[in-house]
Design a binder for these strands. Structure first.
Ligand SMILES: [Zn+2]
Ligand SMILES: [Zn+2]
Ligand SMILES: [Zn+2]
Ligand SMILES: [Zn+2]
Lengths: 144, 144
DNA sequence: AGATAAATGAAAACGTTTGTCAATTATTGG
DNA sequence: CCAATAATTGACAAACGTTTTCATTTATCT
């Protein structure tokens, strides 16, 4: 999602567009990786050394509630946030070497439809991680 | 997973089988819902009032690493744990109230086959979490 | 039963997240 | 542009969730 669209959506939702919020949005957009509020705070400080950590938390909550950034539950003790990617993808992770392969086309629409009708939930997103062993690591295991 | 199997697996992995751990396992097995370590601690205390909260944390980490219980990332600020049912299941999680619904039949075999042939990976397991809003929480959002 | 290393529980350290509040500031409208 | 207004900010502290530390206890093995 482009910078200007995020700022416009913020204003449209009745929030003010402050320099601090713009700095936070820029920093999220500039980073490819998922960042915790704390890590993001450290990065934003380089742009705006006076910014408070609390402002980062508050802004991320707003952006995430408006669907302007993506909140990821990693299993660590803190949430992570990342700019909303252009297209949806999931992960294939090697338990041996840690290699991560992104793939598209998870194709779970039928499953989502089934669950919507069975549970009454509104489904917004999902996270699918497949764990296994890459070719190299599988070979090592077989030998050992 | 039955009580005795969990205890045996614990011992097989080189861990000791203590009364505290048995109480924690019993409590997890007795509860249908996902519980945070804190909530679980309150329940276990009724069986063993002298148990320490730290022991609950440590035990849950061990059980979860050994795959004997299921750790759920709900989007709340704490993880939840639940007994692992005999058959594979995935999670549908409400971003509003944290409610978790288990479902079976994720049916991703075709996807796994495709990825195996495309990447050469051997796939061992997966984690699929769907996030959305339950009927009650969706109503609140629409009203607000 | 005795030796040994793992496990326990209390307290404290640590990181994350939220609440409070006076001071600042983006926005609105004249 | 200026003044009025209400949202936002940042410092501080409080509330959580989780891990570390360490002396004491205890499960396990011989
Ligand atoms: Zn590998
Ligand atoms: Zn997907
Ligand atoms: Zn709900
Ligand atoms: Zn599944």
């Amino acid at each position: 999602m482009p910078f200007d669209d995020i700022a416009a959506a913020l204003r449209r939702a009745g929030h003010r567009v402050t320099p601090q919020r713009l700095a936070i949005i820029r920093t999220v957009l500039a980073s490819e990786e998922h960042l915790t509020p704390g890590a993001l705070y450290e990065k934003v400080r380089r742009m705006d050394p006076e910014i408070g950590e609390v402002t980062v938390y508050r802004t991320l909550n707003i952006l995430s509630e408006l669907g302007l950034v993506c909140m990821v539950h990693t299993g660590e003790n803190a949430h992570s946030f990342v700019s909303r990617p252009p297209e949806h993808h999931d992960h294939l992770i090697c338990s041996g070497c840690g290699k991560v392969i992104n793939f598209t086309g998870c194709n779970i629409d039928a499953l989502e439809k089934r669950l919507v009708s069975e549970t009454g939930f509104t489904i917004e997103e999902h996270r699918l991680d497949l764990f296994g062993r890459c070719h190299e690591c599988a070979a090592v295991t077989a030998r050992g």
